Amino acid sequence: MTTKKLHPSIEEFKEFVNKNPQIIDEVRSGKATLQELYEDWYLFGEEDARWDADRAEKNTEKNTSSIKGGDWLTHFLGSMKKMDPNQIQGQLGQLSKALGAIQNVIMQLQGGAAGQGIKVSAQKPNHPFQFRKD
């Protein structure tokens, strides 16, 4: 069986596709055909802005996967910096009220158990979170 030698530009395009697997995903999803992508690559080259969009999408996917990988705290703190401090304080106030309600329910349930012979010593704090205005 003889192997047919491909044109050098096709070989280069194959290497380009191997370096950029999002191109294959684009073909599989039906957004474009390999022929269209080859023509774009041949006419505009590897450094065209069209490929930058694909690279940016690839980087975005890497960033979201790194957040899942354990960098969520840094992402969360970065998001907190972008928020309005008054909005954060309001949300924390609501969270404090919700925690207080949960504590009341738990104390009532434990109070019922305490009547059956189980001793529970619980102090209700005035505010679970103490925040001071600057």
Rank of each mutant, 00 (worst) to 15 (best):
44 F>V: 01
84 D>Q: 04
67 I>N: 06
123 Q>L: 14
118 I>T: 14
124 K>Y: 03
54 D>I: 12
118 I>K: 12
42 Y>E: 08
68 K>D: 09
126 N>D: 13
40 D>G: 04
58 K>E: 12
70 G>H: 07
115 G>F: 04
56 A>C: 03
38 Y>V: 11
102 I>C: 11
116 Q>W: 04
74 T>W: 05
80 M>T: 08
100 G>Q: 08
49 A>E: 15
48 D>L: 02
122 A>K: 07
95 L>P: 02
122 A>H: 09
119 K>L: 05
108 Q>L: 08
87 Q>N: 06
129 F>H: 07
116 Q>V: 05
121 S>F: 05
81 K>A: 01
74 T>R: 13
53 A>S: 09
102 I>H: 11
100 G>F: 03
56 A>W: 00
95 L>I: 14
122 A>I: 13
47 E>L: 05
127 H>R: 09
44 F>Y: 10
109 L>H: 11
126 N>A: 04
38 Y>A: 02
34 L>F: 10
60 T>H: 09
48 D>Y: 10
87 Q>H: 04
93 G>V: 04
65 S>H: 07
48 D>K: 07
113 A>H: 09
98 A>E: 07
118 I>P: 03
125 P>A: 09
110 Q>G: 00
97 K>M: 06
76 F>E: 06
63 N>K: 09
67 I>E: 03
128 P>N: 05
37 L>G: 03
120 V>M: 02
102 I>A: 14
66 S>L: 00
91 Q>M: 06
105 V>P: 02
98 A>I: 04
